[in-house]
Design a protein around this nucleic acid. Sequence first.
DNA 1: GTCTATATAGCGATAGAC
DNA 2: GTCTATCGCTATATAGAC
Lengths: 226, 226
Amino acid sequence: MAVTEPHTEPHVDTREALLDAAEKLFSEHGIQASSLRMITQQAGANLAAVHYHFGSKEGLVRAVFARRLRPLEEERLRLLVACDEAGEAGVEQVLAAFVAPLLRRVRETPEGGQDFARLMGLAFMEPSEELRSMLLEEFRTTADRFIAGLHERLPHLSRQEMIWRFHFSAGAMAHVVSCSQMVERFSAGLCKCGDHESLLRYLVVFLASGLKAPATMGAELQGEPA
Amino acid sequence: MAVTEPHTEPHVDTREALLDAAEKLFSEHGIQASSLRMITQQAGANLAAVHYHFGSKEGLVRAVFARRLRPLEEERLRLLVACDEAGEAGVEQVLAAFVAPLLRRVRETPEGGQDFARLMGLAFMEPSEELRSMLLEEFRTTADRFIAGLHERLPHLSRQEMIWRFHFSAGAMAHVVSCSQMVERFSAGLCKCGDHESLLRYLVVFLASGLKAPATMGAELQGEPA
DNA sequence: GTCTATATAGCGATAGAC
DNA sequence: GTCTATCGCTATATAGAC
């Protein structure tokens, strides 16, 4: 018993509880449709707590994304550096460094990983200009380094085509992660979206083959030589 | 002057003006964030007109998507049938039948095609269950037929892997169409998202190579023989 | 730091005149 | 088919007690 205050009993941390609740509700209903009332109720906190901890709903939204994106991008870059240091790493290993950290997080999220997966999908589509700028900055470093890492291993591509192919790859990954439920429904259950092991292999094989394809002829309109 | 009523002067059609305004605002701010007041003001119509013509906001949303999706899916299926009748069409032609109708519509939309492109991106990510069900049904026929058409030309793939690869392709396309502005910003303008001619070729080459890749070994957990 | 109470504004929907 | 007016509700945000 001792001298611990008996009246507080925070949920471990109100701030963290708010982030958890917001993440869950955003992924289920979208950002706009998740009111602060729903979020604070889910978190077992008071309506005013959001403004105390995050200043505004916008601040909460930014914090929700930053909490997940920052470690994700760090892990991707760490694995990319490991590829470069290993020396022997090919396109497949670089791709895996990009895809695996995301898939692992989806797998490890409770409730089937749908929350985290849909949240990442939302990030790309969110129309709020302020949030989009933040996400763009968050992704920029990673994108630039992976494009460079892939280009070293695919020198037959022009810079322009290399960039496009990277974004094709990112799109395939983003779509399949955030819409895997839809794929499962479309395939009448044949494609289990919970089987991330197979999905990672399928995806890396597909993307590596696309990336390695010979350069497209006659598509460059500007004079980009190689 | 004659006997034409001077007081009506409809925008050609209030119903159509509402759909145009809603589409524009949805793509700019998202569905939830676009209020009926904003939409009717933009359309030069009265607030009550939405409920007269569409019954509710939900009805308007469905109509906005149906107006664009139905002709798109019809054109895709028409081109796919043409591929089968031609007999000689390979994976590339089937892919083009899937991708080109979307890219053409993006190109032909006023204001740089951003409205239509972002609207399609929104469609995949929209959390409203009712709208998602409608969109799923809208896409199902097309998806099933294209998967079948591709599988005929790629018999070395298991049905499971064929379905995954189709969705990888759809994801790459969807992402690049709805986020092409982001790609342009990331590439410091090197990748012009307005150059749909090049984009189509880049995309078809990339996806065809991915689709044609040898089957992934050791990924099927269920006993799918071929 | 957490609460209640409230300010201020916007929402979708509808009734009923024209 | 289009309008005005309004109902009933919810939203974000804040002030001030504890």
